[in-house]
C-alpha cells in the first residue's frame, strides 16, 4: 500500500484537492487522526485480492434506462431555486470574477 507518513505530509495538498482547508489550530489534530486512520486501512494488505472483481454497489436488478423522451422541466420553480442562491444577478447565479 502506501507510506502513511508521506500521506500525512501531503495533508495540505489533500485539503486543496478537497477544498476543505482547516484552521491552523485544528490542522495538527486532523493530520494525526488522518495518519492513524490511514495506517489502520493498511490492514487490507493482508488479503490477496488477485482476480477478485471489485464490488462498487450491491445493486441487483436495477431499473433500466428510461425512454429518451423530453419531459417538462419546472420553470415555475426557477424563482424558488434562484432564491436559494447566496447571490444572484438577474436570472443567474453569481460567482466572484475568475478572469
Amino acid at each position: 500500500m502506501t507510506n502513511n507518513r508521506q500521506a500525512a505530509l501531503s495533508m495540505a495538498k489533500l485539503a486543496r484537492l478537497g477544498q476543505t482547508q482547516s484552521e491552523a489550530s485544528q490542522a495538527d489534530q486532523l493530520a494525526q487522526d488522518f495518519d492513524r486512520i490511514v495506517s489502520y486501512m493498511a490492514i487490507l494488505n493482508e488479503l490477496d485480492t488477485t482476480n477478485i472483481e471489485p464490488m462498487y454497489s450491491p445493486m441487483v436488478d436495477p431499473l433500466g434506462p428510461r425512454d429518451d423522451e423530453p419531459r417538462p422541466s419546472q420553470p415555475q420553480k426557477s424563482e424558488a431555486i434562484l432564491g436559494q442562491a447566496p447571490e444572484t444577478v438577474g436570472r443567474f447565479f453569481s460567482v466572484p470574477r475568475i478572469f
Binding site: T2, L44, T49, I52
Partner: peptide
C-alpha cells in the same frame, strides 16, 4: 485503497 476496498467488499 479504493479498488482494493471494493474487492474486499466482494469477499
Amino acid at each position: 485503497y479504493f479498488r482494493k476496498a471494493a474487492q474486499v467488499r466482494r469477499l
